[in-house]
Design a protein around this nucleic acid. Structure first.
Lengths: 306, 306
DNA sequence: GGAGAAATGTAATTTTCTTTCAAAAACACC
DNA sequence: GGTGTTTTTGAAAGAAAATTACATTTCTCC
């Protein structure tokens, strides 16, 4: 197959023997998890990184043969990088390769001028949003909405910088009349989680999905019978302890110049969630909100949305 | 910088009823061959056109069931539009949908399905980012960076939801070793502003730029000799009291379904600012940051960036 | 209304993927 | 250096999905 995409990808790989993984979040993820994989699984990963486009067109048996391992090994590799099965993996890979285009602009480097930096930073965020948009699973979103509309109360957990996103989410859902709180302190999260009841919903936000305390808190929440919606990276431990996963795979560069696209993506997902819940809740919610807004306007109480 | 992405958004937003096929070559092909298909095959085609994203995640059996036809009919449809098999079809469809073209446009409305909402919300944010990116004045950004690099201390003011952005900014700049604080309470902001000294920098964040207390605080800051960088709408009162304006004009819909794009845009601007400052501060900052990071990694202290 | 052709569905086949379990390799501990 | 244990890997059975072959229905036109 030749789609012409390869060119983009290659063009996007700037200096330093960098390859497609630089530009593509999924490939970057595979590369990142490479060291943690077993030897033969790693061989599979390396093959995928080397020839991602070929992988699209071959079966698991063919891939296993080409790499020189068994089919279950390929299957395990797929599981290790966070996909439920080989089919899903191929589908996501196809999407990811196709959507890699916006990355052509490259990363910010030490020699960039100010005029160059701003568009690059914006473009990274834009590209990240496009990626997550394309990979968002409507079914999962639907489940999340369902769970929230039935929720007795909502709690938003985010540690460190993600705490900010949690606060934002709390603001939004609180306006809907859903009792909502946000905790950014791990200990408080843990304590709050034990007090949850069945039907309550926790939304856990984390870029890496590897904060032990947050994961623990989510486990506690689940033990208490609450639903746990995770906004995090697909293959992360946090994703595993969640009941509904909203995937936010962002190629988060460890580089200092790297903008923090993850936060923007998380906010966008919260936006999607809140708008969806608003829609699902139907006209009565809408009316109530509109009335509140009108009241605020009438009384000239400003500064609520600034 | 022109990426061509804008065209997709704008050019692709035709009449309201227009659907995916407008923007997507594969879907367009399906639509074109629709009249030549047999009745039940056409039903399959229509389903695919209506919900292309769902098709990606279901099997041929499921699709057949949903359309109300048999599996071979689906297979024949796939063959009729020119694919060797269902698997190939799904793969191509996935790629085609992912290729960056936002195929759902316009605003979110009460009648939108869940599948439509998510892309729309994302697209709004993407479009907003593009707008601000294109309108950003490099000269002003340069002045902002200059002011910040010389700053003795930084204070971030944001009221209500914008307080979240202020916190985020504070996190970022604090990591650079710049004494930074964030206040989201108007009164504290006013008090803090009077205590500033010449050379200090206030960054005021507000979507509307019409929060009286925030404006007052900025005036006080200016009286104290501090620089005031405003991230807000161009013509707003806040913009007028600022010394450096970073324009963030977002069409903030008063609609209930409207996602809050302003926050995302503000965060992106903070990102631009912090990355720019990092670049301007040169290698010694970079080195310091890298050392810090390495130390954290070495000690396996995780959870700082989550 | 019935013969023939077209359209569609049923069921069997084949391919592809997943799971189970056993063998082999690596490892730790004597 | 050997022995028991864990980890890693593969062989083979099982399940799921897609394709093919064939039968049935539906339509058309005489």
């Amino acid at each position: 197959m030749t789609t012409g995409m390869e060119d983009h990808i290659v063009a996007a790989a700037p200096a330093a023997g960098a390859d497609a993984a630089e530009a593509n979040p999924l490939l970057a993820r595979i590369r990142a998890s490479l060291p943690e994989l077993r030897k033969s699984e790693r061989a599979v990963g390396e093959f995928v990184l080397a020839k991602p486009n070929e992988v699209l067109n071959i079966s698991i048996a063919e891939l296993a043969y080409r790499v020189g391992v068994s089919q279950p090994t390929v299957a395990r590799f797929v599981g290790a990088v966070g996909f439920p099965g080989f089919k899903d993996f191929k589908l996501r890979l196809a999407q990811s390769l196709a959507s890699g285009v916006p990355y052509v602009h490259g990363d910010v480097g030490p020699d960039d001028s100010l005029e160059e930096v701003a568009p690059k930073v914006f473009n990274r965020s834009i590209a990240a949003l496009m990626n997550v948009r394309n990979q968002l699973d409507p079914a999962r979103l639907g489940r999340a909405v369902e769970v929230i509309t039935r929720a007795g109360r909502m709690e938003f957990y985010g540690v460190g910088n993600s705490g900010i996103v949690a606060s934002d989410a709390q603001h939004k859902f609180f306006r809907f009349g859903i009792p909502a709180v946000a905790y950014s302190d791990p200990h408080t999260q843990g304590m709050a989680a034990t007090l949850l009841e069945p039907g309550d919903v926790v939304v856990a936000i984390s870029a890496s999905g590897r904060t032990p305390e947050l994961i623990r808190a989510c486990e506690l929440a689940r033990d208490a019978g609450a639903e746990v919606i995770a906004i995090t990276a697909t293959a992360s431990p946090l994703a595993r302890v969640s009941t509904v996963l909203l995937a936010a795979d962002v190629h988060e560069d460890p580089d200092v110049y790297a903008p923090m696209t993850s936060r923007i993506v998380h906010l966008a997902l919260i936006d999607v969630l809140s708008v969806s819940v608003a829609l699902a809740s139907g006209p009565e919610l809408i009316k109530r909100l509109e009335r509140t807004k009108q009241t605020l306007r009438d009384k000239r109480i400003r500064g609520f949305e600034e």
